[in-house]
Amino acid sequence: MTALSESGLRRLWHGLPWALALLVYFTGGGYLGLGTHALVMILFALSLDLALGQAGIITMGHAAFFGIGAYAAGIFASHLSADPLLGLAAATLAASLFGLLSGAFILHTAGVTLMMLTLAVSALLAEFANQAHGLTGGDDGLQLGRMAPLLGLFGFDLWGKTAYLYALAVLFLWSLAAWRIMRSPFGRSLDGIRQNPRRMRAIGTPVWRRLVVAYGLSAAMAGSAGALEAQTTRSVGLGALSVLTSGTVLVMLVLGGTRRSYGAFLGATVYVVVQDFAAEIDPFRWMFVIGLLLMAVVLIFENGLTGLGDAARRALAGLPRRSGRP
């Protein structure tokens, strides 16, 4: 096999997740709502992969940006316009501005202090949403009215078909962007900062500025995810901003594998499906299952589910086992 056709074959593989997603559209039936939720969570996990996987910003408060996106979309829809794309743009912008602003303050720190600052920022925001009853509905949350048709053409139907394709399209565009960003010189410099910020500073990389920009980009993606969640479920609640949401998305990403093309895809999908099945049996059993999965990820398969697939392929091909990542 020549090198060209091999890379062509590789490229074909990249179509697989999207083909599967389209297959779900045609066969999903009553599960389209769940599918839409999975797509939203994939986007959210992908946003975390940029901040945490690529740039090494250990954040325990990423729900802040998801929540801002969700609330911004909700407020935009109820006060300004029912157009979904305008709402999405506004929410993305709001989240990225907040990401840049909070990032500019907190990214001077690192390690455990940074972890705690991200927690404090998201807790502060959650409290604000709880108190600002007039704007956010407080405990009751917000109910969104009917969204206007997408591009003025495709109305949101009862079965969630439009919603599913809408989420899929947004996810596709963002993952293309993320793909480009992670492989650009900027993305490479983030890789370097994660591995050794001191050395990067020594060779003249403006570390803090790069981190703030990465954080802002990640926040924008998370904001889009939040907006999609709000628009497709037509409701926003305080849960969007909670610590549990921050934890959940971390679990999804790490379960799938950080800094892997489809880690976020696999992790978020498995999580959403497991949660749905387990929650049908017993609403609390999913926490047990997810907790065990998390512990297994750390102890047994460090590179997540996608890493597990890699290891299996290498074992089948008779290659030596790769120990961890560089």
Partner: peptide, 24 residues
């Protein structure tokens, strides 16, 4: 010997298991 992230995730998982057990 592992990084902060692995530690955070592991102990977070442990917390989930405890919460689920106490709830049931």
């Amino acid at each position: 010997r592992k990084g902060e992230l692995a530690q955070a995730l592991m102990t977070f998982g442990l917390t989930f298991v405890v919460i689920a057990s106490l709830t049931s």
